[in-house]
Design a binder for these strands. Structure first.
Lengths: 118, 118
DNA sequence: TCAATGCTTCAAGGATTATTGAAATATGGA
DNA sequence: TCCATATTTCAATAATCCTTGAAGCATTGA
């Protein structure tokens, strides 16, 4: 994740509807969600959700794939992790005061499957 | 850090000049930098830097204090750490695939002073 | 008190982003 | 083929954000 991508990602996440969408897609996992389902759950119009989904895709935070009539969107976990790393390293310079408290969070998150980390 | 603050912070960091300023202030540490020095190093006009500094302050990412004729700006380490935690927890739901790779970064950053972490 | 320094505020303009509803496209089934 | 479904694209408008230069305020030293 370079600065260009990070700027786009920050911009994408600075909008309430889009932040909400990313959250929903992270929760829904690899199955993702269809555009219509996202629109319904986020309570926005189809054309509006389409606008925001395009924005999130342009920023690299989500991906799409057609499945029959639906278009399924999924969160890009790598990009989200990359953004967190960018914040820690490139923005905050690995400053311990900033980054260390996050280590506790990282350590406490959903247990890893064996061998998931190398 | 609640969602409202996070949205503001993301918006603040989504602009090149502002991201650059935050980086400079993190590096400059508790001494901070005067507005004029920031403007010079970032190569923007005084009034423009003032506009962006206000935006960053509004988002809670930096703080100011007058020192004689200068106004000294410093990074708000707590807010930056809070934003990283927000991304990990509230946005990404503590998802291990996203957060775990960041643990390595957190572990590798500038060594802590003894007793700095509780 | 006057002038210089350091910074902010203001107003105007341009640029980008968000919202809306209507029209267009793609897919699948009758 | 025709229709319904799922979604996107487009055009228009509104809203927000960025940049610029001029004017204003606060502080210090002569």
């Amino acid at each position: 994740m370079d600065q260009r991508q990070a700027l786009a990602a920050f911009g994408a996440l600075s909008q309430e509807t889009r932040l909400h969408i990313v959250r929903m897609l992270v929760v829904s996992g690899p199955d993702g969600m269809a555009a219509g389902a996202i629109a319904e759950k986020a309570e926005v119009s189809p054309s509006n959700v389409s606008f925001h989904l395009k924005e999130l895709e342009r920023a690299g935070l989500i991906a799409q794939q057609r499945e029959s009539r639906s278009i399924i969107y999924t969160a890009n976990y790598e990009a989200l992790g990359g953004l967190i790393r960018f914040l820690m390293e490139d923005c905050c310079g690995g400053n311990r005061e900033i980054c260390a408290p996050s280590a506790a969070v990282a350590a406490c998150c959903t247990p890893a499957t064996k061998g998931e980390l190398q």
